[in-house]
């Protein structure tokens, strides 16, 4: 079982890559990504962006040999980072690996669109980004049910509390919640996702 939020695995990951340079401040990148995931922190996103963007631009330029396409890779990659930051799990690998995967996948789909004229976006099936997500959520569910976390949940914004309580304590499906709260399903999903991100962070602080 994966622990919900442990610092240890990331250190182990870093240790296995001891041959690598220390120039990249991995823990800073992780912090920024977490702040993006949990608080939609634009300042943190700017940090991530300024670190990666010039490099992505150059790599894409050398690979595609086309300025407009390179700009598209940059834009798509960083939009994905913004949209998927909550899927980043530092115990599964470094932030650089995660962003690299997104960039490689975006580039692959774009090239395929140009060469084969196919917009089938196969890259995420071939190189899955969030493979571990489901099992991780399950263990998180166990975790949340095994403790009295009401106190922590009450610190969430009201609209996220509704969704979390409905989902975990009343065992309503996301679809049922959407009907019950008269909200689009997408909103329920993103509220739940945001709330989970925050809970994980808060639980992580107390979790050994």
């Amino acid at each position: 079982m994966q622990s919900v939020h442990s610092e240890l695995p990331s250190r182990q990951t870093a240790a296995t890559s001891s041959s690598m340079t220390n120039k990249i401040d991995h823990s800073q990148l992780c912090q920024w990504l977490k702040a993006v995931a949990v608080d939609r922190d634009k300042q943190a996103f700017t940090g991530v962006f300024k670190f990666f963007a010039p490099k992505i631009q150059r790599i894409a330029q050398s690979k595609l040999n086309n300025e407009a396409l390179a700009a598209e890779v940059l834009q798509d990659t960083m939009s994905n980072v913004w949209r998927k930051a909550h899927l980043f799990d530092e115990s599964k690998g470094a932030a650089t690996t995660w962003v690299y995967t997104i960039m490689r996948n975006v580039t692959f789909d774009l090239l395929r669109k140009i060469k084969a004229n196919k917009e089938d976006n196969l890259s995420d099936d071939i190189w899955p980004l969030a493979e571990s997500l489901n099992t991780e959520d399950e263990s998180f569910t166990d975790h949340i049910q095994s403790r009295n976390l009401l106190g922590v949940i009450e610190t969430l914004p009201e609209n996220q509390q509704q969704v979390v309580k409905g989902f975990y304590f009343m065992e309503m499906s996301q679809e049922q919640l959407a009907v019950h709260l008269n909200l689009p399903l997408g909103t329920i999903k993103s509220r739940l996702r945001l709330a989970l991100g925050k809970l994980k962070l808060k639980l992580g602080e107390h979790h050994d």
């Binding site: 990249i24 690998g93 650089t96 962003v99 690299y100």
Partner: peptide, 10 residues
Amino acid sequence: TEQVAEASFE
């Protein structure tokens, strides 16, 4: 992947 990523963003 880890190595290529690290090298790419160095």
